[in-house]
Amino acid sequence: MLYFLDCNVFVAVANIGRLSTKDSVLFLCDMQEKFRPNIFQFTNIVSNAARVLQASRILGIPTILTEQYPKGLGPTVPELGAGDLTAHAKTSFTMIIEEVEKELKALGSPKQAILCGIEAHACIACTTYDLIEKGMEVHIVADAVSSRSQTDRLFALSRIKQSGAYLTTTEAVLLQLVQDAKHPNFKEVLITSAQHASHLSQTAGY
């Protein structure tokens, strides 16, 4: 909440949640092989997250990747296109583990988080609460977030919104980050990221 002096009266102006490439970090949560057959709309969730990841690379936004108990749940699915990233293994229902805390500090403690992955009512929700408590602004990419059931997904998104996070979509995130059709990376972000995500999915055989 910001305050401005107008005619000797302080007027409260709500934070509108405008995304910026300068102080953001992308979180990719637990999109792993063993979840594939059980997560609602898994293929679409991963495809949208892949678009956000590719756009983040183009725009220079750092990315943090986690895997939930990879020994039992397997590695991150290849069609996400995150093979070059170091995955932080965890068992907790939050991405904000010690290793991630260190990575955030090394990145200069960014103020905005863009969050994709699974499951909405578990790791996505817990990560959101922790990030908000750290003073970060959280943007949940709703079409890149899911659970095993649509009921858990929808109620989790509603609960997360109550906590102060912003709900958005893949396309909305990309447009907010470039801001203008004249942006030098506009076509690359909007078109190439979609083509890249499609290619990864086809290469992975899904």
Rank of each mutant, 00 (worst) to 15 (best):
Y3K: 13
C7M: 10
N8A: 12
V9I: 03
F10V: 09
F10A: 12
V11A: 03
A14F: 05
N15A: 15
L19M: 14
T21P: 00
K22L: 09
S24K: 13
D30P: 07
E33H: 15
E33I: 03
K34F: 07
F40G: 01
T43A: 09
N44V: 01
A49K: 07
V52M: 07
V52S: 03
L53K: 14
S56R: 00
L59R: 04
I61N: 06
L65A: 02
L65E: 07
Q68L: 05
P70L: 06
P70T: 08
G72K: 10
P75Q: 03
G83R: 02
A87K: 02
K90I: 11
K90Y: 07
T94C: 03
S109W: 06
Q112A: 03
Q112W: 07
A113R: 03
L115Q: 02
C116V: 14
C116P: 00
H121L: 10
C123D: 02
I124F: 14
T127M: 07
Y129I: 14
G135Y: 01
M136S: 11
I140E: 09
V141E: 09
T151I: 13
R153E: 12
L154W: 01
F155A: 10
A156I: 11
S158Y: 11
R159M: 04
T168E: 03
T169M: 06
T170H: 04
L174N: 00
Q176D: 15
K182A: 08
K182F: 02
N185L: 13
F186C: 03
K187G: 09
I191P: 00
A194F: 00
H196T: 14
Y206W: 14
